[in-house]
Design a protein around this nucleic acid. Structure first.
Lengths: 148, 148
DNA sequence: GCTATATACTTGCATTTTACAAATAAAAGA
DNA sequence: TCTTTTATTTGTAAAATGCAAGTATATAGC
């Protein structure tokens, strides 16, 4: 039914913007990519480099450098795994956690503000739909499934 | 209610991937940004540089160079406006149109495939929800509204 | 145990993308 | 006409990207 692509194009663009806006907090400004990395490191339990790179579908070499930057910024730390020294486990520093928390708070505020323009019923519907869409995309063979 | 942010984070990531996948067609490979530019030039009626840059919330100077690239690739053409020579009107070349069409087709195929994992009712609900979300974001004061 | 192969990650480039500041060029206003 | 505004481009410098090749550790076959 009707113009799916247009709806998605606009939605995608708005998401990009939302993510651009999101990432200044605690006096630190980080890029969208960095914020996704931080989000994912916090979510996963001491993940390895490869894991996060895969999750975010970023080239590992690029990712390696991004982590270096985040380490320099003292937001992330990296320690070799004990049982297999090829692996490095990533975690957030205290500062990184604070930043993550801060971004989380402001993102939630943004989302709440956006949702405030809908009534209760619409809000529920939208959330349910996003879940549906996420799992449809997860099932999709053509796209969109890194390692989520 | 419940974890909005996570849902959006995952959805955003999937969109990014979907857009990454989309953009090879007619033997030409273009970036996500370029595909958005082409999409928008086709949609708007001989828009100016500024208009597209604003729509996509891209810095104009960056945009200027992106257009130069697309012109070199013979996908876009640019001609000074007759009544005000400061403006340039953008349009797609025949090749550009073919590419746009091709991307449109494959994006629709992707979306259809994704939607095929839902039943009729769910599909309707999801589309309606995306519309709701789009217009909620449009109303939002905190983010996401370039010049759509 | 030793060599070959695989895996996790990093570095060397070379290209592309980005964005601020300053320049150009055309219109509008005083 | 002179000044200001608007649309676009260029200078430059930083950051992001990705392929190819490198290092280091683990595993497998003998």
């Amino acid at each position: 039914m009707e113009n799916k692509r247009e709806l998605f194009q606009i939605l995608t663009r708005r998401f990009v913007l939302l993510n651009k806006n999101c990432c200044t907090a605690e006096g630190i400004e980080i890029s969208t990519v960095h914020s996704h990395i931080i989000y994912e490191i916090e979510k996963q339990h001491s993940p390895t480099m490869q894991q996060i790179a895969d999750t975010l579908a970023i080239d590992v070499t690029t990712f390696s450098r991004q982590i270096q930057t985040l380490i320099k910024m003292q937001l992330v730390s990296k320690s070799p795994s004990l049982d297999d020294k090829r692996f490095f486990n990533l975690s957030l520093t205290a500062e990184g956690q604070k930043l993550a928390q801060s971004i989380e708070t402001s993102m939630n505020a943004y989302l709440d503000e956006i949702f405030s323009h809908m009534n209760e019923f619409e809000q529920e519907t939208v959330l349910r739909s996003i879940k549906l869409l996420n799992s449809a995309m997860a099932k999709s063979s053509v796209c969109c499934t890194p390692y989520l």
